[in-house]
Nucleic acid binder design. Structure first.
Lengths: 341, 341
DNA sequence: CTGAAAGCGCTTACAG
DNA sequence: CTGAAAGCGCTTACAG
């Protein structure tokens, strides 16, 4: 008779213990628990009841060895800041916990060696799939994921050709912002944004251009409050009519813009409406007035990425390609217009 | 002869394949790889070389089943915001990756049910230990971790009696801030901080009192920029000498304070020196001028917590109790004094 | 020095 | 309806 007898931290309850307690063989115990095979109804009930009583939980390592499924996936990210990865991660975790899947988090900075170590560690642990995530749509992770023995899905980072990847629809997000400004009666809308080298900057800028026209200048700069400040200085010091709306490339820039306007005595939102991008709470909600801004719905993005690796891991077919997820406008006070159209 | 022949995604290379390729038994292959048992030097080398060539990597699930070690730990946190957990997590991951340990991240919000599900999932997966982390030193996670079959370490959250827990030394951090202000010649130092219900608020406040004396008032409020603003308004509108230094309970408050002072025409750091707490980059670095602030060294805290669960998991003895880790002053421009004492 | 055997905890054909 | 046997991929006494 096997018992918890190793001394020290007691050894866990195994299916042997359960079978013994229920007076059946381990194969019957197994089948009863999993609602598999032929087992008498009464026996099945009894085994299940006793399993609960003695607190039996199957060892996932043993199961994984047989089933070739570890119910584990890896999340690889180079976003140390965590600004983008955290919501993505929360979405993944939320979507997968219901399926019994746990997530390994691997922060690899931009170190290829570290990246490889983490990938190897995950593969050794037989992850069912990997989600690669980052902080830029137009940058690859510093590690090659193209020919792994497990499925890979990309979220908020550039994927390899033929892969499945998820990203926000930045053009649609920009349109949301512009349409909101226009609906509020703004007609001279400026665009102050980040570095032109960013793909998302270009995408937002061309959506802006499509609506605002080619004559309007786009001001490219750093992703920083200071740049928002400086840009306002530039616009307000040049001749001609001033904008009555400003669409900013992110919330930090928007905050700089709002602060700079206030310091010049320009009222937000009375004189000028300002929209941000990212809906980064700590910035957007603390700005005076709080920012109306575009939310990229990263949690939803994570959720879909999670469900997709899962599908792939289970061998279900998934169309390769880039999936763009719609953004959502979050209305606070920097534009006026209390309610959404 | 076993081969990769499952069709579809090729099955992984096993020790059988390695043994066959090297012309030895699987036991010899195993011993050669692990530098265990008696194996001829030449054989050992050959097995290792071939393992590398064919890309053999042992299945961690199989190893774990035997060794009772999964080389996996779980990180449980209710800090959705991720402000505290991310650095802690980075430290844990960094410390453990060298030991081949991967980290499951479980964000449980404040939901006890979700917490239990994650804990069960981690135990099923045979984690070697669990690190519980949070956003407040004086709050428990909404799930009982006191009698788990694996070791538990608490980081930046309250532990159960008799457990091992890590936290920042907030009193020492507060002293760092105050001593820095005093060294810069400030003598009338105010303290604007968060809600009195927070343990860390009380600890920082009493360290402040020890240095500033009992006569100085501590202004308690919300953890928000708006409160920093308001507090400055209160202080500057009352009679008597104004402070020449302000020690703030966190960076958000400090930012509100700095903005409010600027708006009143009070110069920072010329007229008043301001110190924050947290060293939250997005706030501290973007303030004008950037904040001198106290860093809780959460990454180091994570590192130590990680190494400690590992020690516990390996059966090495660890003193129970609360370990306070020293904070570090980060000097930027909000105090003057270009270089650290 | 090398290999056959047993076993980690579980599941799944296959007999009875 | 139930159980003995084989096996997932590996390690570790134990023989040879």
């Amino acid at each position: 008779m096997r018992l918890n007898d190793t001394g020290g931290r007691q050894s866990r309850i195994t299916i042997h213990d359960l079978a013994a307690a229920a007076g059946v063989s381990i194969s019957t115990a197994s089948k009863a628990l999993n609602d598999a095979g032929r087992v008498g109804e009464e026996t099945r009930e009894r085994v299940k009841r006793i399993a609960l009583e003695i607190g039996f939980r199957p060892n996932a390592l043993a199961r994984g060895l047989l089933s070739k499924r570890s119910f584990t996936i890896g999340l690889l990210t180079n976003d140390t800041y965590g600004r983008f990865t955290l919501p993505v991660m929360a979405g993944i975790s939320e979507a997968l916990v219901d399926h019994g899947v746990s997530v390994f988090l691997c922060a690899i900075e931009d170190d290829p060696t570290l990246g490889q170590i983490h990938v190897d560690a995950m593969l050794d642990k037989q992850v069912d799939g990997i989600i690669a995530s980052g902080k830029r749509l137009d940058r690859r992770l510093p590690v090659d994921l193209s020919s792994l023995p497990v499925p890979v899905v990309y979220a908020f980072t550039e994927g390899t050709p033929g892969s499945v990847s998820f990203r926000s629809d930045d053009a649609q997000g920009a349109r949301l912002a512009m349409e909101w400004l226009i609906a509020l009666g703004r007609s001279r809308i400026a665009h102050i944004t980040g570095p032109e080298s960013f793909f998302s900057v270009c995408e937002r800028a061309s959506a802006y251009r499509e609506i605002a026209g080619d004559s309007e200048p786009v001001l490219y700069g750093a992703w920083a409050e200071a740049w928002g400040h400086e840009a306002v200085g530039r616009i307000w010091s040049r001749a001609g009519e001033k904008p009555d709306g400003i669409f900013c490339g992110n919330d930090q820039i928007a905050r700089g813009v709002v602060d700079a306007l206030r310091e010049r005595g320009v009222k937000v939102p009375e004189d000028v409406s300002v929209v941000g991008f990212d809906n980064w709470e700590i910035v957007a909600a603390q700005t005076r007035p709080p920012l109306t801004t575009v939310d990229m719905e990263l949690k939803e993005l994570g959720r879909q990425a999670g469900l997709t690796v899962l599908a792939l891991a289970e061998g279900r077919p998934v169309e390769p390609g880039v999936r763009k997820l719609p953004c959502r406008l979050v209305v606070r006070q920097s534009c006026g217009g209390a309610c959404k159209v």
